[in-house]
């Protein structure tokens, strides 16, 4: 098997959209990410970002139904961690509004802070979504030590 160009290592997790799988996803991704030179603080940040992206999928993607959530984690040959959290659920009509802090479709629950944490803790966050077409969140992070070295 050959890896895609520019990818040094990758793993894919796929699981039902159940709250009890959120901890599994963030822990597994943090273990994978520790192949790079991330500090403990940075690994904690990655855990929070994954937790938020997967929680969003669990809460919003399939309504009362259970669907599948996929988490792909890759390390590029340039030493960057790339995470992709995707679902095949109902999608988001207005991504820009959904990303605004304090906005939430379920008030009192998570304060609409999910995207704020992802954006604060990762270098780049990209959200692709359309009604009925699922949602795909891509997040990137390079260890701060590596950024200084280059």
């Amino acid at each position: 098997m050959t890896l895609p160009e520019g990818i040094q290592n990758q793993v894919t997790l796929e699981f039902p959209s159940k709250p009890e799988n959120v901890a599994f996803a963030r822990t597994a991704v943090a273990v994978f990410a520790s192949q790079l030179d991330f500090t403990m603080d940075e690994l904690d940040e990655i855990k929070v970002a994954v937790s938020e992206a997967v929680s969003n999928a669990v809460i919003h993607a399939y309504g009362q139904e259970t669907g599948m959530v996929r988490v792909e984690a890759a390390i590029t040959t340039r030493g960057e961690l790339v995470l992709r959290v995707s679902d095949a659920g109902r999608g988001i009509e207005d991504v820009d509004t959904a990303r605004q802090a304090q906005w939430t479709s379920r008030p009192e629950e998570r304060m609409g802070l999910g995207f704020t944490f992802m954006e604060q803790y990762m270098d780049h966050v990209d959200v692709e979504s359309a009604p009925g077409a699922g949602t795909r969140v891509t997040m990137r992070k390079t260890p701060a030590q590596a950024r200084i070295a280059h």
């Binding site: 904690d44 929070v48 929680s55 009192e108 998570r110 304060m111 802070l113 944490f117």
Partner: peptide, 13 residues
């Protein structure tokens, strides 16, 4: 050892 926005929301509530 860990909290995310769901935990924050629960404390805020």
């Amino acid at each position: 050892p860990f909290i995310d926005s769901s935990g924050i929301g629960a404390i805020l509530g």
